[in-house]
């Protein structure tokens, strides 16, 4: 994410007119809670798209790259890894699309959105990690898209609420009376 202008901001006696208050005073927390599901689903949606891309790049790579005289795609381990990843991604995409339908209908709840973020970002990181592995040493080289995908994927489990915070939200809902 080197082209992202993520920054630190300092406020020292900054004056803003009262008309810059958004909504009502004291309601900020409620507004955040209201808006977070959309942010979290967006992260899940982006996780799926990034995962599809890196998986396809890896499939192309293993068909080209040879070791021990044949394409590494011919090794059973390679095919089994790809099979696992594709199976998980296919099923997660169906869940994500359903969440998107719910969001459009105004029916996506906070707990389900948290599941979308948790599932999407964790799966993305797992897929990208295995794809780096299938690239061998080149997977570690910045010139290869898979290396960038690896670096960029990691923050998905952190921003927009960490995976642990997602589990807190989901877990609390499960034990609530």
């Amino acid at each position: 994410m080197k082209a992202q202008d993520t920054s630190e901001l300092f406020f020292s006696d900054v004056r803003v007119p009262k008309e810059n208050l958004l909504g009502e005073e004291g309601k900020g927390f409620a507004y955040l809670m209201q808006e977070l599901p959309q942010e979290r689903l967006s992260i899940g949606i982006m996780a799926m798209a990034a995962s599809h891309t890196v998986l396809q790049q890896t499939i192309d790579y293993v068909k080209e790259r040879k070791a021990f005289g044949k394409p590494i795609a011919t090794f059973q381990n390679t095919q089994f890894k790809l099979a696992e990843l594709d199976t998980e991604l296919t099923s997660a995409q169906v869940f994500m699309d359903r969440c998107l339908e719910l969001l459009v209908q105004g029916e996506l709840d906070t707990v389900t959105a948290s599941k979308a973020k948790l599932l999407g970002s964790e799966l993305q990181c797992r897929i990208v990690d295995e794809c780096v592995q299938l690239h061998g040493g080149y997977g570690f080289m910045w010139e290869y898209p898979v290396a960038r995908a690896f670096a960029d994927s990691r923050v998905q489990r952190i921003y927009g609420g960490t995976s642990e915070v997602m589990k807190l939200i989901i877990g609390r809902s499960l034990i609530a009376d």
């Binding site: 202008d5 920054s7 630190e8 901001l9 300092f10 406020f11 006696d13 803003v16 007119p17 921003y159």
Partner: peptide, 23 residues
């Protein structure tokens, strides 16, 4: 970070970090 009412203004003090689009 605080925003304290003062006349027609709020006076903001504090710091924020990791702000996407911050620049």
């Amino acid at each position: 970070t605080t925003a304290i009412a003062d006349g027609d203004d709020y006076v903001i003090n504090g710091s924020k970090t990791f702000i996407t689009n911050g620049q």
